[in-house]
Amino acid sequence: MDSASDVLSWILLALGGGFVFVGGLGALRLPNFYTRMHAASLTDSMASILILLGIMLQAGWSLAAIKLLAILAFLLLTGPTASYALANAALLSGLKPGSSADESKEN
């Protein structure tokens, strides 16, 4: 049981790390602001779920697990909100989605 949860925890952590990596790659390589943000924000939410679940399995049933759950709830609330605010601010400041020629604007 102990080793099973350990293996599961490491699988979750590795998957989370993979999501972070993909998100970072997307934020660097995708052509314009909105696609980059899309890559970074979606993978970020998924990665925080996976990584925090992985750490929670490591922590076991303890106060630390509940604290990690609180952190997860906080991240799941703030992350998408921050992405929304960022995209909204970009839209309001006149950056049109869909054009790949806005390279100069977001740098």
């Binding site: 906080f74 609330l77 703030t78 909100t81 929304y84 605010a85 909204n88």
Partner: peptide
Amino acid sequence: GLGHHLIPKVVGRLLIPF
């Protein structure tokens, strides 16, 4: 402020007490 942006407002109000 951001009073006319619904999502940041709701989430922010939810978070401030915590």
